[in-house]
């Protein structure tokens, strides 16, 4: 098949995928979104004869618009712009999970510092303030006191971008020093890992230590439902254990749509890029058959 890769930066994740695709004899069209122009009916990017395009844009804004354009031209693109739109925004992400009945941390949003402070005081300390767009744990604040809350809210209100004035407040979940990342394709888990850290942020990008996590039936079911809630695709589903590591209870705090998997690939026995390419082949075939 002929596969397009939307990118602006080739990370180790993309190199693993490119190697797997080429090894299987697939033709790859790398599309640097920084160079492409997107018109209402056509693009300068060579997408005309592609069987499928995989969005691997590092910048969320580019991912959102580039996939929207490709979908409008009728080019099969994964993940879909609908999935990207939900996953790129923490508010939409939380709403989609809650609407689907997937357990997710208690969350409230306010548009002024005064209203945000009311939420924080009602939640109690500690609680968490997150940017609605962003990742790798950046600009996340664990708020331990009213003094800290007032200072952080004031800082956010002066950061400039209007998105920082959307105050997304979440309960602080007492997790057992780790969270769980599951990478899944259309709800079917490929593999999972725990990310452990003494810091409250356990993201691999923040230096969290990774180890393989054996997927339980409970996690499998939550992953399937969380994936469906955001429209499916190649996703990174993040869960936290509630009530201790052996409780079997989880809350899903986020679903990521341009998931990085190099840390997972290093942590588990499964060949993650191989399974991703299996899925791409099947998805492209599905598009060709009109399903």
């Amino acid at each position: 098949m002929k596969v397009g890769i939307l990118y602006s930066r080739i990370r180790r994740d993309e190199k693993l995928l490119l190697a797997e695709l080429r090894e299987r004899g697939h033709e790859v069209e790398k599309i640097d979104v920084r160079k492409a122009r997107f018109g209402l009916e056509e693009t300068t990017a060579a997408v005309g004869d592609l069987d499928i395009v995989l969005d691997r844009c590092l910048a969320t804004s580019r991912s959102l618009y580039a996939t929207e354009f490709l979908a409008s031209y009728g080019v099969p693109v994964v993940n879909s712009p609908e999935t990207a739109t939900i996953c790129a925004d923490k508010v939409k992400n939380s709403l989609a999970l809650a609407d689907a009945g997937v357990p997710t941390p208690r969350t409230e949003v306010a548009f002024t510092t005064d209203a945000a402070l009311e939420i924080i005081e009602a939640f109690g300390y500690p609680c968490v303030l997150k940017p609605v767009v962003g990742s790798w744990g950046r600009l996340m604040a664990k708020i331990d006191s009213r003094n800290a809350a007032e200072a952080i809210l004031e800082h956010k209100a002066t950061l400039g971008h209007y998105q920082h004035k959307i105050f997304y407040v979440q309960e602080f979940v007492e997790k057992p020093g780790r969270d769980i990342r599951v990478v899944a394709v259309d709800g079917e888990p490929i593999a999972a890992m725990t990310r452990t850290s003494d810091h409250w942020l356990t993201n691999a990008a923040k230096g969290g230590k990774t180890a393989e996590f054996e997927i339980t039936d409970n996690v499998r079911e939550l992953v399937e439902r969380a994936s469906e809630a955001v429209g499916g695709g190649l996703l990174g589903i993040d869960l936290m254990e509630v009530g201790g590591a052996d409780s079997g209870s989880y809350t899903v705090h986020e679903v990521n749509h341009t998931v990085e998997f190099k840390a997972l690939n290093d942590a588990v026995a499964t060949d993650v890029p191989a399974v991703v390419v299996d899925w791409l082949e099947a998805t492209a075939e599905g598009y060709a058959e009109g399903t």
């Binding site: 930066r9 080739i10 590092l58 910048a59 969320t60 804004s61 767009v133 962003g134 990742s135 790798w136 950046r138 971008h161 990008a205 990174g236 990521n256 749509h257 341009t258 998931v259 990085e260």
Partner: peptide, 23 residues
């Protein structure tokens, strides 16, 4: 550094991290 071209092999300083980067 970002690889700009392979023939000839050209490198440039990579773009700075932006706020919406990540997964």
């Amino acid at each position: 550094l970002e690889v700009i071209s392979l023939d000839p092999l050209v490198l440039e300083e990579a773009p700075e991290l932006e706020e919406d980067w990540g997964e």
